[in-house]
Computed example of a mutant assay.
Amino acid sequence: MAGIGTGMGLSGVLALRAQILERSQSLGQIARTGAAASPQRPADPLGSFSSAMGEALKAVNGLQSASDVATTAYERGETHDIAEVMLARQKASIAFEATLQARNRLLGAYRDILNMPV
């Protein structure tokens, strides 16, 4: 799973969101069927989940920082391109919303697993 880069457009953010939703649906299916995880973990060519999430969170933080910098520059009169400022803010907002949805899905899956009868 690739991290969100500061140069990534809306389509990249939406693709990342689709990947997150696809993985959370897979977790939901496992939770509903009660299927146990296989003892052999397949090799993940993209790295571990925790490192991927860490990189994604760093990228979201970078987008938030870029948005703040663009907003501050506009307020100071250093730039007059309001469209660029608004695009930076929307990128940061979409990335944050995708992260929030991923967190909510992960918490829901955790609660489902926690409430499974043993």
Rank of each mutant, 00 (worst) to 15 (best):
D81N: 05
R17Y: 03
Q64C: 08
R32M: 11
S26M: 13
A83S: 11
E78T: 02
G47K: 02
G108I: 02
A102G: 07
S50V: 05
T71G: 13
R76L: 09
I113S: 09
R76K: 13
L14Q: 12
R23D: 11
R103I: 06
S48D: 07
L87F: 06
K91W: 05
S48R: 03
T79F: 01
V60R: 06
A43L: 15
Q64G: 03
K58F: 08
S65H: 15
L16H: 09
M86G: 02
G77C: 04
Q90I: 09
L10S: 13
F49L: 10
M116K: 13
G12F: 01
A102V: 02
G7C: 06
T6F: 06
A95M: 02
E22Q: 15
R89W: 01
G34Y: 07
A35R: 10
M8F: 05
A92V: 02
L27S: 09
S65D: 14
L63S: 00
A88K: 15
L100Q: 12
R32D: 09
E78P: 03
E75G: 04
A109S: 07
T33K: 05
N61P: 01
A66C: 12
F49V: 07
S93L: 13
S50G: 10
L27V: 09
P117N: 09
L46D: 14
S11C: 03
G34S: 05
E55H: 08
P45F: 00
S51P: 04
L100V: 08
N61M: 08
E22V: 07
A2N: 11
Q19I: 12
L107K: 07
A95K: 00
M116W: 05
Y74K: 07
F96M: 14
A31L: 04
P45W: 01
V60Y: 00
R17E: 06
L27R: 10
S38T: 11
A59R: 05
G28D: 08
E22N: 13
S11Q: 10
E97N: 11
V13D: 02
A95I: 01
G5D: 02
S50K: 05
T72A: 15
D112F: 00
F96L: 15
R23I: 03
I20H: 10
R17P: 00
T72E: 14
Y110E: 11
S93T: 12
E78D: 14
N61Q: 14
Q19E: 15
V13Y: 04
M53G: 04
G108V: 06
L21Q: 12
A15W: 02
G7D: 10
L10A: 09
L10E: 15
P45A: 01
V118A: 13
R76G: 09
S11H: 06
P42W: 02
T6Y: 05
R32C: 04
R17D: 07
R17N: 06
L21T: 14
E75S: 13
I4K: 02
A59Y: 00
R23C: 04
P117S: 12
P42R: 08
L106T: 04
Q40S: 10
L114W: 10
V13K: 01
A52Y: 03
G9N: 08
L27I: 07
G12H: 02
P117H: 07
I4E: 01
L21H: 10
V118R: 05
R76F: 11
A70K: 00
A35T: 11
V85M: 05
G3A: 11
D44L: 08
S38D: 14
G3T: 09
